[in-house]
């Protein structure tokens, strides 16, 4: 599914290197977690995968189903099935949540040569998904993320994921700011989508989320590199001992 090889990334605006040789292989159907201290480059990695501007790849490559992901526009990546649940979902006053979702879904379907959904079909689909995530239908009528609480924004990201049904979902700290009930709903949303041809990259600061979304592999990221890779137990170990020990071990 996803193959990140020796990825080096610096900022376009200043000479600051953030990713310093990331290697990661995410096979079809697997869930990988990335953990790591603040500032280690997790969000940068997710933005680079989604195609945000402002970064320069100085070395390395990223293959998505064998194709050069980094050469594609963000909308092309989305149409091919890459989805990023943003750590900080963006507010768009004046664009209705439903309009946004429908435009996105139909744009992706059009790009893939699939027929667009009618208004009624779309409405049925969204209502069903929103219900499962306990999203208030009122929320769907408002502008994208405007006036949403932190938790509502995160659930809205998961709703988008559920509607768009990506092949690769990258969740950037979707658990932060969620209470335990919301966390369970989000995890259920993710687990409901788990499938042999769908993979997840779950970025989290806390092990808590991984009790609900059990990962196949856990990576620890620090200072722009993956410094350790293990199974779900690694997350529990980190939770107990903190990152300091691992970092010390490495030094």
């Amino acid at each position: 599914m996803l193959e990140i090889r020796n990825l080096h990334v610096k900022l376009e605006e200043e000479d600051k290197v953030i990713l310093k040789g990331v290697n990661l292989t995410l096979p079809d159907g697997e869930v990988h977690a990335i953990m790591g201290p603040n500032g280690s480059g997790k969000s940068t990695l997710s933005y680079v995968l989604a195609g945000r501007e402002g970064y320069v790849v100085t070395e390395g490559e990223v293959l998505f189903d064998g194709e050069n992901l980094l050469a594609m526009e963000p909308e092309e990546r989305a149409a091919k099935g890459v989805f990023l649940a943003f750590q900080y979902p963006v507010e768009i006053p004046g664009v209705g949540n439903m309009t946004f979702l429908r435009t996105a879904l139909n744009a992706q379907r059009k790009a893939r040569g699939e027929p667009e959904l009618s208004g009624a079909e779309f409405l049925r689909l969204v209502r069903e998904k929103a219900k499962a995530l306990k999203i208030d239908p009122e929320m769907l009528k408002r502008s994208v993320n405007v006036g949403f609480s932190g938790g509502e924004k995160k659930r809205n990201e998961i709703l988008q994921m559920a509607v768009l049904e990506p092949k690769l979902a990258i969740l950037d700290e979707t658990d932060s700011g969620l209470d335990i009930d919301a966390l369970r709903l989000v995890a259920e949303g993710v687990n409901a989508l788990r499938a042999p041809d769908r993979s997840f990259l779950v970025i989290t600061h806390y092990q808590r989320l991984l009790d609900y979304i059990v990962p196949d592999v856990v990576h620890i990221m620090a200072d722009g590199r993956i410094i350790r890779t293990g199974d779900a137990d690694l997350a529990r170990e980190v939770e107990k001992t903190g990152y300091a020990d691992i970092l010390k071990e490495l030094a």
Binding site: A50, G51, R52, E53, E73, P74, E75, R77, A78, A79, L84, F86, P89, V90, E91, I92, P93, G94, V95, T99, F100, T103, A104, L105, A107, Q108, A111, S143, V144, Q160, L164
Partner: peptide, 26 residues
């Protein structure tokens, strides 16, 4: 940021720009 958010959801750039222009005028 808004433009990228829309594009990351699959909305092609010109269409995303138009949506934001309409949002500005809303």
């Amino acid at each position: 940021e808004q433009l990228f958010y829309l594009r990351a959801r699959g909305v092609p750039r010109p269409e995303a720009e138009n949506l934001l222009v309409l949002a500005f005028l809303a």
